[in-house]
Amino acid sequence: MLVLSRKKGESIWLGDQIEISISEIKGDQVRIAINAPKNVTILRGELIREVSESNTEAVKIDSFMDYLKNETK
């Protein structure tokens, strides 16, 4: 993992099409601006974890339901 320090107004580039800029720093929060092509999906990390956990739970429930169906036959 690459860790960089940036100040307000500074940016980094990912490849030649994605720019990430620091737009505001207030206390312990940093606002970033992302300029990327429309075909690039941008998601917050906590959303990816929530979806992953939700999907894992759904698989467990589906597996349990399949187990119950097979036990009642």
Rank of each mutant, 00 (worst) to 15 (best):
M1D: 09
L2M: 07
L2E: 13
L2P: 02
L2G: 02
L2C: 03
V3A: 09
V3Y: 12
V3S: 14
L4Q: 10
L4D: 08
S5Q: 15
S5Y: 10
R6F: 06
R6D: 01
R6Y: 07
R6T: 01
K7S: 15
K8E: 15
K8W: 01
K8L: 10
G9R: 02
E10L: 06
E10V: 08
E10I: 05
I12N: 04
I12P: 03
W13C: 05
W13I: 07
W13M: 15
W13H: 09
L14V: 15
L14P: 04
G15R: 07
G15P: 00
G15N: 11
G15T: 08
G15K: 06
D16W: 03
D16Q: 11
Q17G: 01
Q17I: 05
Q17F: 04
I18D: 00
E19C: 14
E19S: 07
E19K: 15
S21G: 07
I22L: 07
I22F: 02
S23D: 12
E24T: 09
E24F: 06
I25L: 12
I25K: 09
G27A: 11
G27H: 04
G27Q: 14
G27L: 10
D28M: 11
D28G: 08
D28N: 15
Q29L: 13
Q29D: 08
V30S: 08
R31S: 15
I32W: 05
A33P: 00
A33I: 09
N35W: 02
N35Y: 06
A36L: 02
P37W: 03
K38W: 03
N39T: 14
N39A: 08
V40Y: 03
V40C: 03
V40E: 07
T41S: 09
T41W: 01
T41N: 06
T41H: 03
T41Y: 07
T41V: 11
I42V: 15
I42S: 04
L43C: 10
L43S: 10
G45D: 14
G45Q: 12
G45T: 14
L47N: 14
L47V: 13
I48F: 05
I48M: 12
R49Q: 10
E50V: 11
V51M: 08
V51I: 10
V51S: 09
V51H: 01
S52T: 13
S52G: 13
S52P: 00
S52I: 01
S52W: 04
E53K: 11
E53H: 10
S54D: 05
S54K: 13
S54L: 08
N55I: 05
N55S: 12
T56D: 11
A58K: 12
A58H: 04
A58G: 06
A58M: 09
A58T: 08
V59H: 05
K60S: 09
K60V: 02
K60I: 07
I61S: 03
D62G: 02
D62Q: 08
F64K: 14
F64N: 09
F64A: 05
M65I: 13
M65R: 09
Y67W: 06
K69A: 14
K69C: 05
K69G: 02
N70I: 03
N70E: 14
N70T: 05
N70Q: 12
N70C: 02
N70F: 00
N70D: 13
E71I: 00
T72I: 07
T72K: 11
K73Q: 11
